[in-house]
Write a protein that binds this DNA or RNA. Structure first.
Lengths: 268, 268
DNA sequence: GCAAATTTGTTCGTATGTATT
DNA sequence: CAATACATACGAACAAATTTG
C-alpha cells in the first residue's frame, strides 16, 4: 500500500494500454464506470487519468470520453548535410525533410526582420559581445498547412553595411542566404554545428503550434551555428519543433538512404 | 473571462517567474497565501501549480514549499564523429561527452546479454525479418555515479557463430565492438545513422533515472544504425537519455571545438 | 531528542459549466 | 431539447514530510 490510490489506478490502466487490452483509438470506460471498477471517487479517477495524459498515453474529449492516443506520422528531418550535394544540403530554403511522404507540401511565411541587441545565448554562440546589434530574420514554416517550425536567424548588423543589404529586407532571399553571403561578402560557409535541446514551450509556441496549454508537449530547440572559412561564426539559426511529431536524423560517414528504415507502428 | 481561473493564476505566476520577480531557487508563497492573494480555493491554486510543474518552471517539496526550478548543468554529447580521429569517434567505449567539465567521471555497468527475437522496430532498422534471433547487449551508464543513459545494442545472432563469440559473453569488449567485429568478421563500420526521437519514459526508465513518476520529464531515444562496407546494417544501438539534463551536438563540415559556445544562465 | 507548527500530498463529496451525441 | 461525459471549482479532512521551538 505504498503508492497512492490514483497512482495504482494509473498503473493498472497503463498496463492495459501497453499490453494492448485497450488498443490505440479505443475508448476507455467513462469516469463513472472507473469509479465503480476501482472503488475510488471520481476525483481520484481523474487524477489517475491526468497522469496518463501527462505520459501521452490517452487524451480526453469533452462529451465523448477518454481515448488511447495514436501518434501521428512523425516528420523526419535530416540535420547532416547531404552526401551527394555536399555541404549546405538542406540549407537556405529549408531543412530537408525526408521519409515524409511526397504529398506533403511545405510552405514558409515571409520573414519578420528586425534589428535587435544580442542576448547572452545568441551572443555567446555568435561570439560577439552581449548587446551588439544583430539582424534577426524570423519565419514560420508549415507542412500541409499545419504549423511545423519557428525559425529565427541572427546575423551581425554590420553585414548589411558591408554589402548584404537584403538581409534587412523582409523578403525571402530566393537563392538562400548561404549563397547570398558568399556572393556579397565572400563569406563561405564551410560547416555548421547543430546543438539540440528540448524544453517546455513558451506562450508563443503554444499558440502557434496549437499545443496543449499545460506544456506537456515539449519542443526541440535546435541552435545551428554556421562557420565561415576563417572558422568564425557567421550566423546562428534557432529552430523550434514540437517533439510529438518530429524526429531527426544524423548521417555520419557512408550510409544508405533512410527510406529502408521506415517502421511499422509501435515497437520496443 | 475565457480562461479558467486556475490557468489565469498559472499565467500570473508564470509571468512573475519569467520576468524575474521570482528568481530561480526562490520560494513561492505558500498555497494558503496564494489562496488569499488570488481569492481561489486551495485546490484551484494547486491546479495552477500543477501546470507550472508540467512546464518545468517550479518544483514542490513536501513540508517546505514551492520553488522556482534551476536547471542543472546539461551533459552535452556529440553525435557526429570526431574530425580528427575520423569515423567511429566516440564509439565502442562510450559516446563522447564534451563541454562536460573534466571532473566528471563516466562509468558503465557490465552488459546484460540476451538472445531474443527481433521486434518490428529493431527488425526494420537492422533490415532482418521480424522474429529473427538477435543478440542484445544492454548496459547502464553513469556519470559521477548518477544514472545517465540506458543503452542496448542488437546484433544478428549468427555473428556469434561466424567468429564473434564474445558478443555472447556478458563482459565488456575492451577494444570496442567496432574493432572486434572488424577483426573477427571483416565487417568494417563505414558509417552510421542516428535517429533522434523524444517520448515519455517507461516504468524501467522512471526507476533507473529516478524521474518523477508522472512522466513530465521525457527521454531522448536515439537509434544508431551502423553500416558495413556493403552498406548493410551491422548493428543497431538504442540509447535513452532524460531530456532535462542532456543535449546533443552535431558537427557538419569544418567547425571549431564547441567550448567557445558555452553559455551563461538563461537566455531566449 | 521531541513536540508543535507549517506545508504539501491524497482523497472524498458536491455543485455547476461546457462540449458532444 | 435531453442525456452523456468531461472540465472547473469549492470545501473539508486527514496523511506525510519538514522545519521550528
Amino acid at each position: 500500500m505504498a503508492d497512492p490510490k490514483y497512482r495504482q489506478i494509473a498503473d493498472g490502466l497503463r498496463f492495459k494500454i501497453e499490453s494492448g487490452v485497450y488498443p490505440p483509438d479505443q475508448k476507455l470506460p467513462t469516469e463513472s464506470d472507473l469509479t465503480d471498477e476501482f472503488g475510488a471517487s471520481r476525483n481520484t479517477i481523474r487524477d489517475a487519468i491526468k497522469s496518463l495524459i501527462n505520459l501521452g498515453l490517452v487524451e480526453t474529449r469533452p462529451g465523448q470520453g477518454t481515448f488511447v492516443t495514436k501518434r501521428p506520422d512523425p516528420l523526419v528531418t535530416t540535420l547532416s548535410a547531404d552526401e551527394v550535394t555536399g555541404l549546405g544540403g538542406g540549407e537556405g530554403a529549408a531543412y530537408r525533410s525526408e521519409v515524409s511522404e511526397e504529398h506533403r507540401t511545405p510552405a514558409v511565411s515571409e520573414p519578420d526582420v528586425r534589428v535587435q541587441t544580442a542576448g547572452g545565448e545568441i551572443a555567446a554562440r555568435l561570439r560577439v559581445p552581449e548587446g551588439m546589434r544583430l539582424i534577426s530574420r524570423h519565419q514560420q514554416r508549415f507542412i500541409d498547412g499545419t504549423p511545423w517550425s519557428l525559425q529565427t536567424s541572427f546575423y551581425p548588423r554590420q553585414f548589411a553595411n558591408q554589402g548584404a543589404e537584403r538581409l534587412l529586407e523582409d523578403q525571402d532571399i530566393a537563392e538562400g542566404t548561404v549563397e547570398y553571403l558568399l556572393k556579397k561578402l565572400k563569406l563561405k560557409q564551410v560547416g555548421y554545428r547543430d546543438w539540440i535541446t528540448v524544453r517546455a514551450p513558451n506562450l508563443n509556441e503554444i499558440t502557434f503550434f496549437r499545443l496543449p496549454p499545460d506544456g506537456r508537449v515539449q519542443v526541440f530547440e535546435i541552435f545551428r551555428t554556421a562557420f565561415d572559412q576563417d572558422a568564425n561564426p557567421m550566423r546562428v539559426t534557432v529552430t523550434v519543433f514540437p517533439t510529438d511529431c518530429n524526429q531527426f536524423i544524423v548521417n555520419v560517414g557512408k550510409v544508405p538512404p533512410a527510406k529502408y528504415e521506415v517502421v511499422p507502428p509501435d515497437g520496443s
